[in-house]
């Protein structure tokens, strides 16, 4: 059976700040021969507005997303929190609008996070990737807790040649990002990200891997200010690493 066409949901932060993460995801799918679509009109799923309580604006973004994506066979996104937004919060936003809610549920059912799609839907754990180093994996909050995805990224990492995994303490403790929280309460946010970074450093790893660029942006931004030089990478970037011979 030919693989279903994947419609790429490339969240705003990846689009604007980390396009290389989106490209890495494309490379992985290319390697697997998965046909891709990318609706160029996509912008943001509405999560920042939703988390801040601005639900009218979030609802408009959600409608727009549903309009753009509802014909897709499968929607794949390199972010746990954006997928959590679509899967859990879109249906909540339309709780009192039965038709929209039904459409939101339809879209929710076929929206997947990147590692989840690879492991649970395509059944692939070995992408033939090679990458040298010791990686520690950061469980991002919405991926691990809202979506329950903890093992899939680790499984994928374990199959990368040349890479070893070193678990950090409290790998699923929040990195302190929290969207506007990090800007409104910078001191608290910094205390949290410092805890995270200390755990990362204590793991002995030289690469931090995660599945949400918002956490990675936070961790990397703080590390950069602290003068720590670990590499901070999205899972897709590791999986797109050199194919092994």
């Amino acid at each position: 059976m030919p693989a279903a066409t994947v419609t790429l949901f490339v969240q705003c932060l990846v689009d604007a700040l980390y396009p290389e993460v989106g490209e890495a995801m494309v490379q992985v799918f290319d390697r697997l021969g998965v046909p891709l679509l990318y609706p160029e009109a996509q912008t943001c799923c509405g999560q920042p507005a939703y988390n801040s309580g601005h639900h009218r604006e979030a609802e408009a973004a959600a409608r727009r997303f549903i309009d753009l994506f509802e014909d897709a066979e499968a929607i794949v996104c390199p972010s746990g929190s954006c997928v959590a937004m679509v899967r859990r919060h879109y249906p909540e936003l339309f709780a009192h609008q039965p038709i929209m809610r039904e459409r939101a549920l339809q879209v929710a059912r076929k929206t997947f996070e990147f590692s989840e799609y690879l492991v649970d839907v395509l059944g692939v754990v070995d992408l033939g990737a090679a990458f040298s180093g010791i990686a520690t994996y950061h469980d991002s909050c919405h991926l691990a807790r809202t979506l329950g995805i903890r093992e899939q990224p680790r499984q994928l990492l374990r199959h990368v040649q040349g890479l070893s995994l070193a678990e950090m303490n409290n790998s699923d403790a929040c990195c302190g990002f929290g969207g506007t929280f990090s800007v409104n309460y910078p001191e608290i946010s910094l205390a949290l990200v410092d805890d995270k970074i200390d755990n990362i450093l204590n793991s002995g790893a030289d690469i931090v891997v995660g599945c949400d660029v918002s956490c990675l942006m936070n961790i990397r931004g703080r590390m950069s200010r602290r003068g720590e030089n670990l590499r901070v990478l999205h899972l897709a970037q590791v999986l797109a690493g050199e194919e092994r011979a």
Partner: peptide, 17 residues
């Protein structure tokens, strides 16, 4: 105040696509 900020990439994903 306490973190560096990742600047926007010169070419967005959309443009690269």
């Amino acid at each position: 105040a306490g973190r560096d900020l990742q600047p926007m990439a010169e070419q967005s994903f959309r443009e690269r696509w």
